[in-house]
């Protein structure tokens, strides 16, 4: 061993490196890693802790009971409120928060916290005809032709909800048989 001093130093360096690595590792690996499989156990709780953004139609109907009841009783009960209106979490939060904002501004704020459907784009998601769609689904080939072939005249401002109530699908007609704009809003 007289002529192997340099190897001893090398081995010492290696030992220092390995021990240093193990020390750093023990400090940096989370305590709950590997408790139940090769992962950080609290990652499950982290994922579960996220706040759901879609509140569900029942939650919407708690305040908007009139629309909710009409929706539940109508033919359009399978699409959920949030399909067209977007997730309701922010809306409920704004409603629930303590606020000193005065009346018109506060309503505006609450309204801005939820998506306001255009009344035509959302309808076309389901009701424009494509070959792959089941024939049992009511669909139209083209909005302009649909309106023109009925009682109206298609303009660029024409909307489905000018005639159809999106919550119930009901079309109300006046004495002459011409559809009248349905009452939709809250």
């Amino acid at each position: 061993m007289r002529h192997a001093a340099h190897f001893l130093r090398l081995v010492a360096l290696l030992v220092v490196a390995v021990v240093g690595f193990l020390f750093v590792r023990s400090k940096l690996v989370p305590q709950d890693f590997g408790v139940k499989g090769h992962f950080r156990l609290s990652a499950i709780a982290d994922e579960a802790a996220r706040e759901p953004r879609h509140i569900g139609s029942d939650a919407c109907a708690e305040c908007h009971d009139e629309i909710g009841n009409a929706w539940k009783a109508g033919k359009h009960r399978t699409p959920q409120c949030e399909n067209c209106h977007g997730p309701g979490l922010m809306h409920t939060k704004v409603v629930a928060e303590e606020s000193t904002t005065a009346y018109p501004d506060r309503i505006l704020k609450i309204r801005l916290a939820i998506r306001r459907p255009t009344g035509i784009v959302e309808c076309k998601w389901c009701h424009l005809r494509t070959f792959e769609r089941p024939s049992t689904l009511k669909s139209i080939a083209n909005v302009a032709d649909h309106i023109n072939s009925h009682t109206g005249t298609f303009t660029k401002d024409s909307k489905c909800i000018d005639c159809h109530n999106p919550h119930t699908t009901v079309v109300t007609v006046n004495a002459k048989g011409v559809p009248v704009p349905p009452k939709i809003g809250p």
Partner: peptide, 14 residues
């Protein structure tokens, strides 16, 4: 499936 895309939109928002 009717291909409305509601699921994909909801997923993106959620």
């Amino acid at each position: 499936c009717i291909g409305c895309g509601s699921c994909a939109r909801a997923c993106r928002a959620e």
